[in-house]
Each structure stands twice: as C-alpha cells, then as structure tokens.
Design a protein around this nucleic acid. Structure first.
Length: 734
DNA sequence: AGATGAGCGGTTTTT
DNA sequence: CCGCTCATCT
C-alpha cells in the first residue's frame, strides 16, 4: 500500500495550500497516509518540525505516524509535536505551571487516573454526608467530567436543580482535593491549557506563533474543549488541517460532538473540503454491508465508498449459537480450522465486542484451546493492585502531596498505621497548612524543623516514624539515583516481595507483575521518573502489552477504531448488546450504536463473521435475547448463514424476501421428529466435492448433529460454508 | 490493627 | 458470579 501513488484527491489533501482544510475520509481511504504525507510535505518544503503540531486521538496512532515519518524522512521530522490532545496539553502545562503562573498547581503535578478520580469522589461524598445510593460516585464523576468538557469550573457551574446543587458541592470538594494533591485529572489537562491561554493572551500567542501548522486526526471525536484548544493554537497562522469521518464518531458519551465538523465549516467559511471515498482496505462485499448499515443514519454527508480492489470478496458469515460458550467456541474453532488449512494466520483475526465483559468467555475458550491471543485495553495490567501500589509509591516520592497515593500505600504492606493514625496525621498537616505527605517528609528528616515537633502525640509519631524516614530517604534520592535504583530501593525498604509473594500461585503471579513493571522502569532509566509516570498515566495499556506472536486480537468495538484486520468477528450481535440497551431510548445514541457497528464492519479487509448467542450468562443466570436489529440492514445477498438447527424466525425488514427465514434451515418441531439412529457420515475431511452453484471445494469436517450430517466445506469460489448434507447436492469427486 | 465473612451491587464504551 | 464494602471478632 505504501508503494501505491496517492490518488488525485489524496494528493490534493497533501499539497493544498489552503489555510483551513477539512478532509472527510471514509474508512480505509488512506487518512493516516494523507496526514503523514502532508507533514512530510511541509517538512520538505522547509517548515521546521517544531512548528508543526499534529494531534491524534490515541497514543497508538501517534506512534504509528511517528514510525511512518521516520521511514519517509529519516530523522528529518524529529521535533514535530506529535501526540494525543492529553499528552500535548500535559507537555504545555509542565512548562507553564511555574511559580507565579495563574495555574493552581506546579510543574510536578501528577495525573489522576479513573480509579483515583473515583476514590476522590467517594471520599468527597462521604465527607459531605451525602448518600452514595442517591448519588452514585460514577454518575457524579461523569457529571463533573461533563462540566469540565464544557469548560465549566465550579465557580461557573449553574445549579438548576437540587441534584445539581449536590453535584456542585461534590465538584467543589473534588477540585479542592486535586489542588491540594497537586494533581490533575484527564479533563483538567485540556481545561487548564484553555484557561491558561484565555487568561494570558501572551502565553497563547507564544504557542500560536510557534505552531505554524496544526493538523488533527479523528476530528469527529473532538469535544468542545478540544475544539476551543485548536482554535487557540492555530490563531496566529490559521493553518488548520483536520481529518475525520462523521460516520465513525463513537465518543459522544465522552463529550465528543461530530457537529464540530459543521462548526468548522461555519467558523472557517473559506475552508476547503476534500472527500476521500476510494477504499483501499476492504472487499466490495464488506463495503456494501457497511453501507447498508450506515445509510440508515440521517444528518450526515452521504459518501459513496468504492473498493479499489477488484474482487467482490467472501460472503459475510452469520452464526447463531445457543449460548455465549458456543459463541466463543465457534470463534475459536473457526480460527483453528483456518490455521490448520493454512488459509490464514493468527494475527489476521480480530474478535470485537461491545462490552469488555464479553472478553472473559472468549479468553477461556482461547486458553483451553491453547490458541494464542492478545487482549487490548481493559485494565489488564495497570489495574492490578500490586502495580497500582508500586506506581503509588513512585508518585508519592515524586510528589509527596499526592494524597490519593499516600492513602494507598501508607499501610501497604501493613505497618500498623490504621485509620485513626492517618486521621491524626491529616489533622496535624491541616493545622500546619501543608499536605499530609509533606508533613511526613518533614518528620522523616534527620533533624525536623522545630515547628513540626509536638504536632502529633508521641505514640502516633512513633508509629509513623519508620515510614516517614523511608519516604524522606527516597525523596532525597530523586535527583541522585536512577529510576531503577529508586524502584529497587522501595521494594527493598518495604519488603514488598515478602509481603506479596506469599507462596500461593496468585502471589507468584503478582510478584511477576511487579517485575514486569520493574522492567519497564529500566526502559525509562535515562528519561527518568517524571517521564515514566506521565507515560503510565497517559498511555493506555494497548501500547505496552507484550506482543504475543502472531496471535488473534480481542478488543472492544471502540478500541478497534483506526485498525484493520484480514478477518473480523463481531460477536454479541444481540438486541440489548449491540445496540446496547442503555441506548435504546435515545435516537442520537442509537445512531451512535449504529456507527459503532459500522466501525467494526469496516475494519475487515476480507471477511466478516457476525456471531450471536440466543442466551448468555450474566451474573450467573441466563438471559435470552433476539438478534440485533442492525443485522436486518445488511443486504441479504451478502450473507451466508451457519449454525445449529432451531425454530424459524421471521424477519421484519421488508427489504428482505418475505419467504426468507432468519438464521436457520426450517425444520419440523422437535416433537414431530423421530429420533434417528446414529447415521453414517457420507463425507470425510479432505474429500473433494462439487456443489451445483459454488463449484469445487474440499471437506473440512463432517459430523452428526441432531441426527443430521453437517459438513464444513471450503469452496474455491466462496470460501467457508457449513451445510446440511441431506439438503446440499454435493457430488463427491475423490 | 488486622482477619474473616456476610451482603450487595454491578456492565457500556476510554484519553 | 465476582469483587468490594462494612461489620464483627480476635
């Protein structure tokens, strides 16, 4: 693909001299390629790399662009500001949060992750004597995040109801906690840059004059803060190049607003709009199916994606399993068969699902089949208790004011510091006007300042002393010792291994995780603790997970955006899962669910498998569901069904042939069926056969199911089919 | 202070 | 079903 020349429109997008350019790029239309080529074009035209800012949505996308630029230009593009919104903002704030700035934190701020945020909210709710039943911490946090995404700080928050009043109070307390911990949450990173720029035009100007060119990926998923930020950053030169696709907007719940695309056209009436509709990824079958789905959405620019590839491609396979276990087994066995027949390799496959919870059953099936897989996202590594502990230690050493981290590790491993002791410490710190961590640091000094003597009762002081001393020593090492040395020192001083690795399998496992993190710390030996912590906070886990060799990928539909795979399974094609039940009352949300499905479909280069289960276990009991309504929008001619025999279901979509049945071969009710003696297989694996319409193929497997012989055949023309031997008119060739 | 066990609530999606 | 919180006991 890299060898191909750019098509005419891509070329235009890369070289156009227009100031503001809006590229509407369908899936697989070479969007990343256009972005990287444009950056390369700018650099080769003499623009200094540091004057180019390119913003991506994920770290992964940023790294991929970096690699491509490296390949194109060697080191010539080094220095381009390339990163996510959040990483870019963190970088700006680390420079600007100097003493005397208007910002309520200094350059040693730490970044709170979702867990930290939630524990701050919980604490605030508790301290304010609010019921956490009526005000769910999660809901309150999302209200706060929502406000921040709209640039609303507590002082700007207009409470229009009792509920708002309460949320506001929590918000205030929450913000205070962050401030006293010298911490920022994700939303703050963006918010404070915008506030900084608004309050200090000279600072904004400095950056705006630095960034002669601003380029943005996944523009449809920007929110209001991000839009504002882009406006500010490009305000000097007005060179703003944005790439996006309304149809792939899937982050509305996070404040993203694809109408930013419309806003862009309105705010920059002289912008040039370029449509990329030539698809270089998928077969026409994949595109037709995707189009059938997305064309049901209104209020969008209709695109006419056409495949640059000649072949129509394999039909879409639809499989209905009886339950989620069979669903997973179907995925695994289909992959195994393809591997065995050398039709594909592991890394060609991706299995996508709506909710993270669905990965569990899949993982079990992969494990028991001995099939390698890699799971992206889902807090696998960084959510681990032992990992969070070690990170908390490091964060605390870096920034002793970090209350959340202090609370996490002050008594881990247990060192007789209970709630009462912590409370006394906090009270004493408050009366001294410093944070608890700072006070500890002081108490651990060889000669603490006299002012801090007598703040605490002698007994409590004594209990805290050993920990305080350690903290002081670690903190002192910050500038002299390397990160790995500090890491080891903490492990040693806390006796962490002995505490964690208690001889059980789980303990060994946990210790192995710590060693994994330690390995990562060695990678940051030269860059240091600050870079290490920032990376841990901002880089999602998909980046750092050890790459399993040639393994299938398990990921949510959200995480799939921007990726491509040869063969894609989308599982859980059930009403209530996709579209998700939480979306069904809201038209906008339903449209977003549809886009999510569209994103999944368009990841496939060659083959799509849509899989559902009639029932799946949730919380221990079974729940039944009907097929996803989205399935009805896929043209019938593109689909080939597969699965176990079960009662006929009628299809409601008039686009389908009335006489067609859904999912199954029709069959008499069970009661009318006479049990048949086990019958002999007529077909065996490796036999060559001929089908009247599909031509020649080879039998992959034959088995007796419910008294019927079922054969899996791979046809040269259409690929994999599962057939009932009694119905298919197969001719045996060899 | 720490260990144990009953009870409960939770699942959308992520930088 | 699982993991977490809270209450109770040692």
């Amino acid at each position: 693909m890299t060898k191909n020349p750019l098509n005419e429109r891509q070329q235009r997008a890369v070289t156009s001299p227009t100031n503001q350019i809006l590229v509407l790029a369908g899936p697989g239309s070479g969007k990343t390629r256009v972005l990287t080529h444009r950056i390369a074009h700018l650099v080769q035209g003499g623009v200094a790399p540091y004057r180019i800012l390119a913003v991506t949505f994920t770290n992964k996308a940023a790294r991929e662009m970096e690699t491509r630029l490296e390949n194109m230009l060697g080191g010539k593009a080094n220095g381009v500001w390339l990163g996510t919104f959040h990483a870019t903002c963190a970088r700006i704030l680390r420079r600007e949060a100097l003493p005397g700035s208007s910002l309520p934190f200094d350059t040693r701020f730490v970044i709170m992750d979702a867990d930290d945020q939630l524990s701050i909210v919980r604490r605030a709710i508790k301290e304010l004597n609010i019921s956490d039943k009526l005000f769910r911490p999660n809901a309150v946090l999302s209200a706060i995040s929502n406000a921040k995404n709209n640039l609303i700080l507590p002082q700007d928050f207009a409470a229009r109801s009792y509920r708002d009043e309460v949320i506001l109070r929590v918000y205030q307390r929450y913000q205070q906690s962050l401030q006293s911990s010298n911490a920022l949450d994700f939303d703050d990173l963006l918010l404070w840059v915008v506030r900084l720029f608004s309050a200090n035009p000279e600072v904004q100007n400095r950056y705006a004059h630095q960034f002669e060119y601003v380029l943005v990926d996944e523009f449809q998923d920007t929110n209001r803060v991000q839009y504002e930020l882009l406006r500010q950053l490009s305000s000097a030169y007005g060179n703003l190049f944005v790439v996006g696709d309304e149809d792939q907007s899937i982050y509305r719940w996070r404040g993203a607003d694809y109408r930013n695309v419309l806003r862009f056209e309105k705010d920059y009436p002289r912008c040039e709009k370029i449509l990329l509709e030539q698809n270089y990824r998928s077969t026409q079958t994949v595109l037709d199916a995707a189009r059938g789905v997305i064309d049901q959405n209104r209020n969008r620019t209709r695109k006419h994606l056409s495949s640059a590839r000649a072949e129509k491609g394999k039909q879409i396979v639809l499989f209905e399993a009886v339950d989620d276990h069979e669903e997973a087994e179907y995925v695994v066995s289909t992959i195994q068969r393809a591997l065995r027949d050398k039709l594909a390799e592991g890394a060609d496959f991706a299995i996508m699902y709506r909710t993270n919870a669905q990965s569990r059953v899949l993982e079990e099936a992969f494990l028991s089949a001995g099939l390698p897989y890699r799971l992206v996202g889902a807090q696998r590594f960084y959510g681990r208790r032992e990992i969070k502990d070690m990170i908390a230690y490091l964060r605390l050493v870096y920034n002793p004011s970090d209350d959340v981290s202090l609370g996490r590790v002050i008594n881990v491993p247990a060192r007789h510091i209970g709630d009462k002791t912590v409370e006394a410490l906090q009270e004493a710190a408050r009366s001294a006007g410093i944070s608890a961590g700072e006070l500890l640091l002081e108490l651990g000094a060889p000669e603490p300042e006299a002012a801090f003597n007598g703040l605490l009762p002698a007994r409590i002081h004594g209990v805290l002393q050993p920990f305080a001393r350690h903290l002081h020593e670690w903190h002192n090492q910050l500038d002299s010792a390397s990160l790995p040395a500090l890491f080891d020192r903490i492990l040693e001083d806390t006796n962490y291994q002995a505490w964690l690795d208690d001889g059980t399998d789980e303990g060994t496992d946990r210790w192995a995780n710590v060693l994994e993190l330690r390995k990562l710390a060695f990678d940051y030996e030269t860059r240091g603790l600050e870079a290490f912590l920032e990376n841990l906070a901002l880089v999602s886990d998909q980046d750092t997970l050890p790459e399993e060799n040639n393994a299938a990928t398990l990921l949510t539909l959200h995480a799939a955006k921007g990726l491509e795979f040869d063969r894609v399974f989308i599982i859980g094609m059930d009403d209530g899962l996709l579209p998700h039940s939480r979306s069904k009352d809201d038209e906008e949300e339903m449209a977003e669910e549809r886009r999510l499905f569209y994103v999944g479909l368009t990841r496939a280069k060659n083959q799509i498998y849509l899989v559902r289960a009639e029932r799946r276990s949730t919380y221990g009991s079974y729940e039944y569901s009907t097929p996803s309504q989205f399935l009805e929008d896929i043209p019938r001619s593109l689909v080939q069904e597969s699965g176990k025999v079960k009662p006929v279901r009628r299809v409601v979509n008039p686009a389908w042939d009335e006489t067609m049945t859904w999912g199954r071969v029709p069959q008499a009710p069970a009661s009318a069926r006479t049990p048949q003696p086990a019958l002999q297989s007529r077909y065996k694996a490796t036999m060559r056969v001929r089908h009247p319409s599909w031509g020649d193929g080879v039998i992959l497997e034959s088995r007796i199911e419910d008294g019927e012989e079922t054969v899996d055949v791979h046809f040269e023309s259409v690929g994999f089919k599962r057939l009932l031997a009694s119905l298919a008119k197969l001719e045996i060739l060899s």
